[in-house]
């Protein structure tokens, strides 16, 4: 595989390396290509946003990175290792929190799911309460998910992922189902959590402004099957601020560039 191998140095810098990843799924007796020739590297510690219209394989791509769906051709590596199943230290946060949370478990026990039986009871307790504090839900430990608002439920899911101290969070449009205000506060919470935990985050969204606001880098995915159109290094200053950052000329330039890369509002598949 000429040019496909990563060097030792790159392995230390990159968590994920995708080379010519294509994926087809069975569809009406035949096959349908969902992803075509995706090559990207995700650097350790960065917040990498993938933005694109619906139907371009974003969710499929994150499932490939999370080891839930194998790719049809090409190679996906994490820390230099080929992915064959859900890799250690990588957790997916799903968009549909109501299906992803265990409705019969309290918030505490939901968050404990990934670590129970793996750490001592006292450690489990402090770890769960620690991440609940991180997402501001320490008072809701004994509530059931259905007693919480959508934003709080999504925070439970994020806390559950953080409880296993992941090296990478894969987030599949986690804020898409939330109202604008909740979304903004969770975006800032996510940036703060990333600051505190130092984990790498791959964040999928169809919201261009969200991609620019959160991202250290942005990849634009488009078409059917989905291809990476462009990647951007987001040079906006940190910490980001919902009002100040969004008013910067730079921000608007990135927003414009991403819009252009997607094809504005005029091009429909």
């Amino acid at each position: 595989m000429a040019g496909g191998e990563t060097t030792g140095q790159q392995q230390r810098d990159f968590v994920f390396s995708c080379r010519s990843v294509s994926l087809k799924l069975p569809y009406q007796g035949g096959n349908r290509w969902i992803l075509a020739d995706i090559s990207l590297d995700i650097r350790r510690g960065e917040l990498f946003t993938i933005v694109g219209p619906s139907g371009t394989g974003k969710t499929t791509l994150i499932r490939v990175l999370g080891g839930l769906t194998p790719c049809s051709s090409g190679s996906v590596r994490i820390n230099g290792q080929e992915i064959t199943g859900p890799p250690e230290g990588v957790v997916i946060v799903f968009q549909d929190y109501s299906h992803a949370l265990l409705q019969w478990r309290t918030v505490f026990l939901n968050v404990a799911l990934g670590i129970e039986g793996r750490v001592a009871a006292s450690e489990l307790r402090s770890q769960v309460l620690g991440v609940l504090r991180l997402v501001g839900l320490e008072k809701n430990a004994d509530d059931y998910p259905w007693q919480l608002s959508g934003g709080m439920q999504q925070r439970v899911q994020i806390a559950r992922a953080l409880a296993v101290k992941p090296a990478v969070l894969l987030m599949d449009e986690p804020f898409a189902a939330l109202d604008a205000m909740t979304k903004a506060s969770l975006q800032d919470e996510l940036l703060r959590v990333k600051q505190e935990t130092g984990c790498s985050i791959v964040f999928i969204t169809h919201d261009i402004e969200e991609a620019v606001y959160l991202g250290d880098r942005i990849a634009v995915i488009n078409g059917t099957p989905g291809r990476i159109e462009r990647t951007f290094d987001v040079t906006l200053p940190k910490p980001r601020d919902q009002i100040i950052t969004r008013q910067l000329t730079e921000f608007l330039k990135f927003r414009y560039a991403v819009h252009q890369a997607i094809g504005g509002m005029t091009r429909w598949p």
């Binding site: 080891g67 199943g85 859900p86 990934g114």
Partner: peptide, 13 residues
Amino acid sequence: HARLGEVGRTFRL
């Protein structure tokens, strides 16, 4: 719901 099985898998149960 299939999602619940995937939650189990992503936590490597």
